[in-house]
Each structure stands twice: as structure tokens, then as C-alpha cells.
Design a protein around this nucleic acid. Structure first.
Lengths: 123, 123
DNA sequence: CCTCGCTACAACCATACGGTTGTAGATTAG
DNA sequence: CTAATCTACAACCGTATGGTTGTAGCGAGG
């Protein structure tokens, strides 16, 4: 399995910033399920079309989404690989956390076993 | 295994916004690896201590991190469960994407089977 | 052609963000 | 007690964000 190039800091900034808004997450979700035009998307929300355009642009800058012309419409497509990369990063955080939790558990278990009188730190 | 309560929209906003900054991601990473005080953290970055305090506060509002007093220091701890929940959401997006990709692949495969004329792939 | 619908883009506004400095409250060290 | 350290919080500043309205460019249809 080919390991995807990890995201740069700037790309991560853009991806997480794009995800930090409920409207944009909803747009992403709709883009995943089916393909809608920008104006079709805008009809789902109680805000102006340009506002939705901007949200789509934010998702596009984060490469979570791409636009493709179809006639006079601009269809919004989701980009699964970018989502996968964000997942990969968060998985790393989680893995580190779990590893650390295990390490601490080990230390505590060892301390419990060794646990004689005092608390000596070995050089 | 108990399934954790999914995050509310507001919580997601805060989590992803917190992750949308390289400094905060670094602080989170350090909090996962070991436990450092706020001022200790601030020494890693070329910005003032109050700036780092604010970053920690953002992580804290997102519940990615908690602070616990130890003497006159405020130690920053990572909160693994919150990271896990963010992972869960992104996994959902990814799963939906993969499912949809499979569905499309099925449709295309069916079209291929129905297309009698030429280029037949034998099952 | 002309018109209509979808899109794009600029200008503007209020608010939030990320940083700074400065002041003040706790807590440990001496 | 005094001094030093860590923290908290307020005020301020420049810039970015998220929304609006208005204008203009394309593409399809009559």
C-alpha cells in the first residue's frame, strides 16, 4: 500500500480551518453523498449565494473539494484522499496518546510490582 | 464497548478550530508526549507567554486539553477521548466517501456488464 | 439576437483572531 | 518577610473571517 505524502503545516491549517464550520461540514457531507451545483447547495441554507460560494472556496483551498463545470453549472465534488490524510493525522495523535497511556499503565504496573518502601529514581 | 456520545456542532467547531493552527497542534503534541507547564511550553515558541496562554485556552475550550495545578505551575494534560471523537467524525466522512466510491464502482461495473458490444471483461 | 439562470468578483461592514504590552494575584525559595 | 516565578486578565492593534449587496461575465434556450 502506497503511503500518501503527509500534509504540510499550511495544508493542515487550511483543512482544519475548513472543517471548523458547521455549514462547510454540511456542504462537504452533501458533496460526498451526491454532486450538487453551488446554487443548488445554497438553497439548503439561509444565507446568500455569495456566502455559500465563499464556503465552497474555503473547502476548495483546503483541497477537500473540487469544482467541475457541467454546462452552466459548477458541480462540487468531494476529494476523499484529503479527508483520508486528515484522518491519518488525527489517527497519529490518537495512536501517540494510546501509546503514552499504555506506557503510563506499564510504569504504574511496574511501580505496583516493585513498590517497596521508597521512591528511588535510578540514574 | 461503549460508544462515546458524538460531538455537538459547537464542540466540533471548537475542536477543528483549535486544530487549525500549527502552534496549537504542536502544543497538543507536547501535551500528549509529556506534561509541561504553560510557561515551559511558551519557551518552545518565539512568541510571548500570554499568546501561548491564549492558545492553551483555545485547546482547553475545545476540551482537547485540561490544566491541573501542581504547585505554582499549571500543567497541561491532553484529553485523548476528545481526539478519539474527532477521529470518529472524520472516519465517518471517509467511510461515506469510500461507500460512495464503491457504489459508483458498482454502477460502472454493471454498465460494463450490460454493455454488450465490445471490450468485455470476463468474470 | 435577447433573456434568463448560474457563477464570479468587488466593496463594504461587524466581529473574531492572533499577537502585543502592562498590571496584578498566588505560590515557592531564601 | 522579601524576592522571584508562574499565571491570569485587561486593553489595544492589525488583519482575517463571515456575512451582506451590487455589478458583470458566461452558457443555454426561445
Amino acid at each position: 500500500m502506497v503511503v500518501a505524502r503527509p500534509l504540510t503545516e499550511g495544508e493542515l491549517d487550511r483543512v482544519f480551518h475548513a472543517l471548523a464550520d458547521a455549514t462547510r461540514r454540511d456542504i462537504l457531507s452533501r458533496a460526498i453523498h451526491g454532486e450538487e451545483s453551488v446554487s443548488a447547495l445554497s438553497r439548503h441554507y439561509s444565507m446568500s449565494l455569495p456566502a455559500v460560494q465563499k464556503h465552497v472556496a474555503v473547502l476548495e483551498r483546503a483541497a477537500l473539494v473540487t469544482k467541475k463545470r457541467r454546462g452552466r453549472e459548477q458541480i462540487v465534488h468531494a476529494n476523499g484522499s484529503m479527508i483520508a490524510k486528515a484522518v491519518a493525522l488525527l489517527d497519529q495523535y490518537e495512536a501517540l496518546w494510546i501509546e503514552r497511556a499504555d506506557r503510563i499503565a506499564d510504569v504504574l504496573a511496574a511501580a505496583d510490582v516493585l513498590a517497596p518502601a521508597d521512591e528511588g529514581e535510578r540514574p
